[in-house]
Amino acid sequence: MNWIGLKFQLKTIRRDKLCILTFLLPIIVGIAINLLGDMNLTSTAEPSFGIVQNDLTKETISWLQETGSVTVYDSTDALDIAIIDPSTQLLGVLSLGNEIRVLRSGDELQMYAVIADTLPLLYAVRNHAGKYEQTLLPPKNSNDILKPLLIVITMITAMFMGCTFNAMNILSEKEDGIVFINEILPMTGTQYVKQKIAVGFLGGVLSTVITAFVCMRLSVTQILPVLLFIILSSFIASLIGLFIGRSANGLMAGIMYIKIIMILFIAPPILFYLAAPAGGILHTLSYAFPSSATFYGLMGILNGNGALGTEIIVLIAHCFLWFLLYIMTSKRIQS
């Protein structure tokens, strides 16, 4: 390993504001998620009802407030506008003699549509609760799935930073003509690749470790697997950065490639995680994306799951395959 070369690489990165910013961005998001944890996000998940002033009895209003948030409007017209507003799932509740009637806009999620359709019945049977017994089980795992999901997405993005580092670094060298200087310097291709991977890799690992430190509460036994995931995926990400740097011929094209690969890196694992049940064929196929293994592994750790063997083996296989592919293709280009 040529340490002086690495030192120079780091020096150029230090001057590059874009690299510094991409380095800091996931950490900032991590801090934001941490702050978000104290904020109450639940209000968006509750049903929300809109009523008109002086229409419903006090008893009905307090019944509505038990199951959702209630907003009061001055007139039926204002209520109609609020119901139709496409960005809300508001249901309108009006009195009808001793009963209630409900207005909805027709574009709600199925859950709210069904609630709207059954609300008058719920109102009618509201006093029957005493006829039944109730068992309220405590929440099984941490009550919101959103936070671990956000944390893992941020961590995957942080790992992806290695890719951005490398791609930007190589592309700016291309633009400045340093590539040609590199060709006549006494440095082998392998040395060059090593240095470039090292820069992106170190940046990615550092950024991710800090992000993990900010937003994950890990026990001692969890530190090692998390670190392993971070190291392996940062390696892959920085390798992808090399691919982008080599194939893009301008900064603009490079940024576009990064954008596309970033979507491919982040979106499929989330989709597969939410849609494909573990053990299915789709789940197995999703391991073709290197980020899927990391995603499942980190989700497993956050949800207190111990078995991570498959994920780590898949990641190691990815590391080998991508590295081999890189070496093979670069030899072909040179010859």
């Binding site: 119901i83 139709i84 496409p86 249901l91 309108g92 909805r104 806009s105 027709g106 999620l109 359709d117």
Partner: peptide
């Protein structure tokens, strides 16, 4: 419930 909006989901 009465549907008052112009769009379906």
């Amino acid at each position: 419930a009465k549907i008052i909006g112009p769009n379906d989901k």
